[in-house]
């Protein structure tokens, strides 16, 4: 067994399964705190904001028993620190910390005057995993929230990833680099294809046609494969065609696309085949042979694409 596996095993023995608490809320559930939350979130639910007997948004659950701004727990709380395990992982080099999942059940909504306390149990410390952020392990905490009558009002399972930050080109973003949205990959526009992309920017789907033998072709290429002529012109497609095949892509989800992302191979009425996106029809309703029409849409600055819609079955 490797050194790091041993270290994690020791942490497991020390922390997993130990229920610690109580941690008390600094204050009773108050309209002031609820109002501050609603103001921040843009929440307008009147039940949260009424002048008396307001209830608290259930999603506030975890915040009630948090430490104060200085890191202190409220009086009468246990002096054990739930997050000691995270500190120990820090000292092993897993200094990165990110919450990765959250599963909360709300047994009853809290209301003004409720005084909450919580208990916390480390449920699991995973084996080492390779993740996109770096090597690390997942720590799963289970928290229970009780009111002043010791009635359970909610619970939450929270999983954190503790990782060794890696310095790879994939994840290392320079501090000063501006945050860049991930856009669609722009096509290469070269001598052979620029007309096609410019045509789309001008709102036209252009098909290459050989000037000598009139054979049409797509995607663009400089020489006619039928007569070897280098002379060509374009004709504008009427954008009608028939679905030859299709796929609905579910995974991986690549920004900036919406999923499922439906791609169709369309036999255009002019006689060439083109791959493009289709919108407006659920994947399970699409059939080979459906008639489609494209409209040209500017999908991002400087990039226009034909987007198809089904017009007839």
């Amino acid at each position: 067994m490797s050194e790091s596996h041993k270290e994690l095993d020791l942490l497991r023995q020390k922390f997993v399964g130990q229920r610690v608490g109580p941690y008390y809320a600094w204050n009773k559930v108050s309209r002031t705190q609820v109002w501050q939350w609603c103001a921040a979130m843009g929440e307008t639910n009147p039940n949260y904001l009424q002048k008396s007997d307001a209830v608290a948004p259930p999603t506030m659950l975890q915040s009630w028993t948090f430490r104060d701004v200085h890191g202190n727990y409220a009086p009468d709380s246990t002096d054990k620190n739930t997050y000691e395990v995270l500190g120990e992982l820090d000292s092993l080099g897993y200094v990165g910390s990110v919450a990765v999942s959250y599963d909360q059940s709300y047994h009853r909504y809290l209301k003004e005057g409720d005084h909450v306390h919580s208990f916390s149990t480390i449920k699991d410390i995973s084996d080492l995993k390779s993740t996109g952020l770096g090597e690390g392990c997942f720590v799963t905490e289970f928290a229970e929230y009780f009111d002043h009558d010791d009635q359970l009002c909610g619970d939450a399972t929270i999983t954190y990833l503790k990782y060794k930050p890696q310095q790879s080109s994939k994840t290392n973003r320079s501090e000063t680099a501006p945050l860049k949205k991930v856009g669609r990959i722009s096509p290469v526009e070269n001598h052979d294809s620029k007309h096609f992309w410019q045509g789309l920017r001008d709102g036209k789907l252009l098909i290459q046609e050989c000037s000598e033998c009139q054979t049409k072709r797509h995607p663009p290429q400089p020489m006619c494969e039928t007569c070897q002529s280098l002379e060509w012109q374009t004709i504008e497609s009427n954008c009608f065609g028939t679905i030859y095949s299709y796929t609905a892509i579910h995974y991986p989800e690549i920004p900036p696309f919406d999923y499922p992302n439906v791609i169709v191979l369309v036999d255009l009425d002019e006689g060439v085949r083109i791959a493009a996106q289709l919108e407006g029809t659920q994947p399970e309703k699409i059939e080979i042979g459906d008639r489609v029409q494209a409209h040209i849409k500017e999908v991002q600055d400087g990039l226009a694409l034909p987007i198809f819609k089904v017009t007839a079955k």
Binding site: G42, E43, N45, P58, S101, Q104, Y106, Y109
Partner: peptide, 21 residues
């Protein structure tokens, strides 16, 4: 939570939220 209750109505009760970041 806001997104859900805006749609479901103020008196609806959110029982559980499971999410991955």
């Amino acid at each position: 939570g806001r997104y859900l209750s805006d749609w479901a109505g103020p008196d609806s009760i959110i029982k559980r939220i499971k999410l991955k970041l």
